[in-house]
Amino acid sequence: MSAQAQQADHFHSLHRDGLLLLANAWDAGTARLIESLGAKAVATTSAGVAWSHGYPDGDLLPVRRLVATIADIVRVIRVPLTVDVEGGYSDDPAAVAETVAGLIDVGAVGINLEDGGGDPELLCAKIEHIKRASARLGVALFVNTRTDVYLRGLAPPERRVEETLARAARYRAAGADGLFVPGLTDETEVRAIAADAGLPLNLLARPALPAAAELERWGVRRLSAGSDISQSVFARTSALASGFLSDGDSRPLGADVMAYSQLNALFADR
């Protein structure tokens, strides 16, 4: 078994017990920093990756830039990497599988793939094509399927649990390994979906959610920071840059920074 195949198996195992916390990165530097803080795995944020390359989020990042970013990240980390591929950057399941195969080729062992506002059957077809491609490559890719029933309000509030579970059943039958339900925060609904989805449940960090220990008791197996960390970094950069451009005061620039030597050391042995 290859080292990548072993890493993929390990990534699967991280969803079986406890709660996997994923602080999403957007480039090699942030991925290495997150790994150095003790992360068991690293995930990307599609929004952060897109913004770092000067593109809006929403399946608009050129695939070649995504693959190059993932190759850069894999070079500097040693823990499993899962990639947010949005909707796969295509409505053609074969093209989506080809894109994902390119990510496996450079070292990814997991992906997030979303239904958005599209037909669940299309996502099922994408999953099936991806699973066949990953099998050919000898890597048990973890396919975490994201449904936007809550995020986009795709069903009335009283039917959201039912619709989410119906989609989970279809995605599971197509070969999905996990279920991501951003926007889900209510304890009763979380417990119901976690109990009946038949897939490890992934939530998106939200102020309404309790801390990790309580979420684990609810049955949640994965919690993602999403784009929040990158948004916070952009906000901090905006504040510092605007202040400096306004008055040229150097003092705020040196406050609350990581030491140059500490940052440089992160990459010295990579």
Rank of each mutant, 00 (worst) to 15 (best):
L60A: 14
R132A: 09
A71M: 03
E121Q: 12
G58P: 06
G58T: 15
V109M: 00
A108D: 01
D91P: 09
A71T: 06
I130W: 03
H53S: 08
D72F: 05
G116S: 13
C124H: 15
A71V: 00
T69H: 04
A68T: 14
R132D: 02
G117I: 11
A41N: 07
G48A: 07
T69D: 01
E114S: 11
A94P: 08
L103K: 01
R78H: 12
A133Q: 03
E114T: 13
A125T: 13
V83G: 03
V49H: 04
R64C: 06
A50R: 06
I127N: 14
D92L: 11
G118Y: 10
V109L: 00
V83D: 01
N112L: 05
G107L: 04
I127T: 14
P120A: 14
H129I: 08
G54P: 03
A94H: 15
V49L: 02
D119P: 04
V49W: 04
V106Y: 01
G102Q: 05
K131R: 11
P120F: 06
V67T: 15
I111T: 15
A43P: 02
V100W: 02
D119K: 04
T82N: 09
L81K: 11
P120D: 15
D72R: 10
D72L: 03
C124Q: 15
C124V: 12
L81N: 07
C124T: 15
A108L: 00
L137W: 07
I127C: 09
V106P: 00
E128C: 03
E128V: 14
V109E: 00
G88H: 09
S90I: 13
I130H: 06
P80Y: 11
V109G: 00
E98Q: 10
G102A: 06
D59Q: 10
G116C: 13
I111K: 15
A97H: 09
L123H: 14
V74G: 04
A68E: 11
I111S: 14
V63H: 12
H129Y: 14
L81D: 05
L137D: 07
V83S: 03
I130D: 04
P62V: 10
P120H: 12
G102D: 05
A108M: 00
K131H: 02
L137R: 14
L61Q: 11
W51I: 10
A108N: 02
T45W: 05
P62F: 02
V83N: 02
P56G: 11
K126Q: 08
A135P: 01
T82K: 08
G107F: 03
V67F: 07
A135S: 11
V42T: 00
V67R: 10
G117N: 15
L61K: 11
R65E: 06
A108S: 06
D115F: 05
V67Y: 09
V74W: 05
A71Q: 07
I111V: 15
A71W: 04
R132I: 08
L103P: 00
D72K: 09
G48C: 03
A133M: 01
V79G: 13
A135R: 13
V109S: 01
D57A: 08
L61I: 13
V74C: 08
V79L: 09
V79D: 13
S90N: 12
A108P: 00
V49P: 01
